[in-house]
Amino acid sequence: MNVQTPPDKLTAKDFASDQEVRWCPGCGDYAILKSMHKALADMGASPEKTVFVSGIGCSSRFPYYMATYGFHTIHGRAPAVATGVKLAQPDLDVWVVTGDGDALSIGGNHLFHALRRNVDLNILLFNNEIYGLTKGQYSPTSRIGLKSPSTPMGSLDSPAQPCVFALGCNARFIARGIDVQAKELGELFSRARAHKGASFVELIQNCIVYNDGVFDGFTAKDVAAEMQLHVKHGQPMIYGKERNKGLRLNVQALQIEAVVIGENGITEKDLLVHDEKNRVLAGMLSALRSPLFPEVLGVIYCDPATSYDSAVAAQDALARAKGPGDLDKLMRAGNTWSVT
């Protein structure tokens, strides 16, 4: 999307609809919504050129709270609806809001294909590792052993890792953020919007009712600095309260190690430097999980390629370059005969 400055600069408030927000008090969705209102104002987005498309679930109520165009669709299908919107009007700025159940369970197929095709959508996956709206069943991102109404003895199946999945789908933009980190989210939203093609953003989001504190191991204030690595293109991968921890590549094992600067002769020069265009590195970073590693946040991967919708528009334009079709002529082509 072109960044346009509307005649009167809009504020965050201008992007909030008049509808009462109906999430549970304390839900992480509030913070994300607020960050989005502000980010769109900061980016100079135009409300009439912006569309939010969602599926079903708590997060999918998001469009109702935006003063933009919005379409609350059906369970899992938001990427498909959004693809149709983009095919019809490639110039629109189209956001998809979805959750871990919506995007990775019932809608896994559509997410896969939207990413693979590289449709110019900004896809925000609110990951709270639970089904909230249906009252607390385990989700495809829930950790093994989670006791829920549908898994009273603990869940048995291995969780999906959203960013790993996205990379496997050949997504060209993958980022990760935490619901309450407003400043970082603003940057991620801005980057996602600027990226042509499918932008995939996993948002770590706390469900205060059914899965409260599930991310505390890396989001709680006392551990956040030690357990979060905010990557930046061209910057060494350093984290920790003392900024003395980092990631380096063990070449022999072909895997990433968490190290401490100053221990065993390690210096900053030994650390990995983030390269957004490095797909192999993106794969490694996406798979890191706390507590053995810090959780990686920020833009993990960004390597633009032609978006599907722009390629479709180009093909359509090529076909139309010879002038508009003449239906009367088309129907009379080939073998015809006259009766008088």
Binding site: F71, G84, V85, L87, H110
Partner: peptide
Amino acid sequence: CAAIGASYA
């Protein structure tokens, strides 16, 4: 769904 998205647009 894509057809519906197109109609919406």
